[in-house]
Computed example of a mutant assay.
Amino acid sequence: MNETVILTNLFPTPWEPGRGTFNLQAFTHLAGRRPLRVMVPVEWPTWLRRRPAPPPLPAGLAGRVDWFPYWYPPRVGRALHPLGLLASLAAARPGRLLRRPAALLASWAYPDAVAGAWLAALWRVPLVVKVHGSDLNLMATGGLHRPQIRFALRRAAGVLAVSEALAGEARSLGAAPDRIRVIYNGVDTARFQPGDRRQARQALGLAPGRRVLLFVGNLKDSKGCQDLLAAFARVAAAQPRVDLHYVGNGPESDSLADRAASLGIGERVHLHGGRPHTELGQWFNAANWTALPSHAEGVPNCLLESMACGTPVVASRVGGIPEVVPDEAGILHPPRREEELAAALEEAMGRRWDRPRIASHAAGFDWATNARETDALLSRATGTGEEFQTS
């Protein structure tokens, strides 16, 4: 079987080894079912920095991941980014264009899927587009991105949506309903499972006798990290034993520290920076609750991983989150509403949670099923698999 080429910026790189770890896990399992070649564009400002050692890759992907520089004009011409991506691939790996794969899977709508549509046409192979969340919820809302994303989705032989909500967005953009398949991400239950909270806190050097409210993700405004700080300030006086811990990097990091100090809760807000994905199981087990008040989402894996550890979640009612967080595993609230987020935190902090029941629910999302269904979608796109029911 010819290899399937995957084009995606959502994948670990030497500079960002924690980037797109959900795709690393998904494609590792998929590689057990079909040969893959993963092409990862790296934005040129990052590429020009000193290159660290590449991240370790599992056996199925070792030697099958190719990072290449992605050139585009800074701050202008964003509508031309797909063309820049295609030109960058041709310049960096011209031999790759001469080798026709079995299919092309583009994982992220813009610019990856748009460039992928042109590349699939050049190769005359089927295109499958995987959509994740913000690539449709935010990037496809207007401007010149929307018609380009619509073009790619209409050209696609298959569309993989990580939630029913995203499948609906894909349909509204013109994707053929009979080509859309909802395939939820999985969770590695060998790494994310209930553990001893005291031991996890000791291993992470967290203060004993405190309760932990945890945020894991990019520290950017759209993830609701500032909303969470404001809501925590509202409940901090009534919850004197609770501290807020942020795990992640991003542009809001310095602002969060400064704002926490100005709110008088600086000693109770801790920013730990980005941590390896292999360490996150300890963080979720150390936490009493995980919060993710995003403004837009697909299905964030940090929520699945938290629940797999038996840790309840407080999250915004957006995207596919309501599809994967039942009442017994968490509390949902409207996005961008600090007062209602604060009320949700108070409710979570006052409720008795059944950790085994939460973990059992999350165990239903597994990477083996994800790989089997993704492989079936690719087989159907290439004309070698059976039909499936419309999502």
Rank of each mutant, 00 (worst) to 15 (best):
R275L: 06
D375L: 08
L213H: 07
G273N: 11
N185S: 12
G320Q: 04
W67V: 08
A286P: 04
V216G: 07
N249P: 00
G205M: 09
P147F: 10
R234C: 13
G20N: 06
R99W: 06
V318C: 12
A176V: 00
L127A: 02
L204Y: 04
L377T: 01
A26V: 11
A120K: 02
L24I: 04
I358A: 10
P276I: 13
L219A: 08
P58W: 07
G248S: 09
Y110G: 00
L378K: 01
G264V: 07
M1N: 06
P276H: 10
A115M: 06
A79R: 14
G143R: 06
C302F: 01
E267M: 09
L85W: 05
G350Q: 14
V216F: 08
E340D: 12
D178L: 01
A92M: 07
L127E: 01
H270Y: 12
D66C: 12
R336K: 13
P322Y: 06
H245I: 09
R336I: 07
M139A: 15
T4K: 02
A233G: 14
L122V: 11
A175P: 05
G273Q: 12
A308Q: 01
A103W: 01
A257N: 06
N137E: 15
C309K: 00
E338M: 07
E297L: 00
K130S: 11
G20W: 00
A236E: 09
P300V: 00
R211G: 10
A121F: 09
H145G: 07
E305F: 01
G350R: 15
A120L: 02
S294V: 02
T46I: 15
R154N: 08
C302N: 11
A237S: 14
A261T: 14
T374D: 00
S262N: 13
R19F: 06
R317G: 06
P54C: 06
Q148P: 02
T369P: 03
R317M: 14
F68C: 05
N249R: 10
D227L: 02
A329S: 08
R75I: 12
G77E: 11
A203M: 12
S316E: 06
R64Y: 07
E16V: 12
L206H: 10
E339H: 07
G186S: 04
S391K: 05
G186H: 09
P14W: 01
R150Y: 05
Y246Q: 04
A231P: 05
R154K: 15
A103R: 03
W353A: 01
N218Y: 12
G158S: 08
P82K: 09
N370C: 14
A233R: 09
T382Y: 06
R197G: 12
R96H: 10
I180M: 01
K130E: 10
P251L: 15
A170F: 03
L213R: 08
C309T: 01
E43N: 15
R198M: 13
L36S: 09
H29L: 13
V325H: 00
R355Y: 14
Y110D: 00
W283R: 05
R317E: 15
A368K: 15
M307P: 00
A59E: 15
A381F: 00
W353P: 02
L48R: 15
G205N: 07
I265D: 07
N301Y: 03
I149G: 05
V38Q: 05
E164V: 14
P312G: 08
V131I: 11
D227S: 10
R33M: 14
